[in-house]
């Protein structure tokens, strides 16, 4: 007897308000001075959507996503000193300020990223990097880490730019398999929408077993039946489409689509 077809996953969601995220303020002093660059006056603020480092009272992740950090580097030279990674797929989206990124991948390179710039760093079999704000302006970056499809891949780094003017009013795919998007070695798509009040859009996951994490960078968004303000977010899975409407001008939204593995423990 063939087993009956698996029933589609039931629609599920959670909402995470901006102020409910894990909040850390990490100063470049004491034992942290080797971790946080810019000693002695610099500090990083980090708002984590999922459990990370000291923050362990939230959700462990969403599909293959383990880290979603909304970070600000404060002070000249603030950032992360050179440190190693393996395996994780690390994406960074610069929203404000300037990020100087020194990375050992491919024989080494120094990259500078400004607002709209973003990178995908697959740490694979190992690499080190250092990330600094060297201008003194506050640097706001969204960091997203994913588990890879395979361990110990050859390390890779790529970068691109999202133009919020020419790309306005449409959901633009920035990362994952698509023309013009940066490749990433797992089943992941990251898209961004900048639009104005009254503009309606439909986000279409590749299947109902993919989940979408919707994070409002700026403005206000009605997403399904939920109203999201700046830095609010929602995770939705088990649906074929997600209807969104901007309710403020210059609303700016990230959509992170991941394969849900069926053992999500996201509803803490």
């Amino acid at each position: 007897m063939p087993s009956p077809p698996a029933s589609p996953p039931a629609p599920c969601s959670f909402v995470l308000r901006a102020g409910e995220r894990g909040h850390d303020l990490i100063r470049s002093d004491g034992t942290r001075a080797s971790y946080i660059a810019g000693h002695p006056d610099a500090f990083i603020t980090r708002d984590s959507s999922f459990n990370f480092h000291e923050y362990q009272n939230g959700r462990p992740g969403f599909g293959s996503m383990r880290v979603f950090g909304d970070e600000v580097f404060h002070g000249v030279g603030c950032g992360y000193n050179m440190h190693p990674h393996h395996n994780f797929l690390i994406c960074a989206f610069v929203l404000q300020g300037e990020l100087t990124h020194i990375n050992t991948v491919g024989g080494g390179m120094v990259d500078q990223l400004g607002p709209g710039d973003y990178y995908v760093f697959s740490a694979g079999s190992g690499g080190k990097h250092c990330e600094l704000g060297i201008t003194g302006e506050d640097t706001n970056i969204i960091y997203i880490w994913f588990l890879p499809a395979q361990l110990y891949l050859p390390p890779t780094y790529s970068r691109a730019h999202f133009d919020g003017r020419t790309g306005r009013h449409g959901i633009a795919q920035l990362v994952g398999e698509a023309d013009g998007a940066l490749p990433i070695p797992n089943d992941i798509r990251i898209s961004r929408l900048v639009t104005d009040a009254g503009s309606k859009h439909t986000c279409t996951p590749r299947s109902s077993s993919h989940g979408t994490y919707v994070f409002v960078l700026d403005g206000d968004l009605r997403c399904a039946d939920t109203v999201l303000a700046r830095r609010d977010s929602t995770g939705i899975w088990g649906v074929d489409k997600i209807d969104c409407e901007a309710t403020a001008d210059s609303t700016d939204v990230l959509f992170v689509e991941v394969a849900m593995t069926g053992d999500e423990v996201v509803g803490r």
Binding site: R66, S125, G126, P148, L151, Y152
Partner: peptide
């Protein structure tokens, strides 16, 4: 640490043993 069920890329296991 989190338990994962992820295979190695080609040659990855040999590199992991030398980590």
């Amino acid at each position: 640490f989190e338990m994962v069920e992820i295979g190695y890329a080609t040659g990855g296991a040999e590199l992991a043993q030398r980590a």
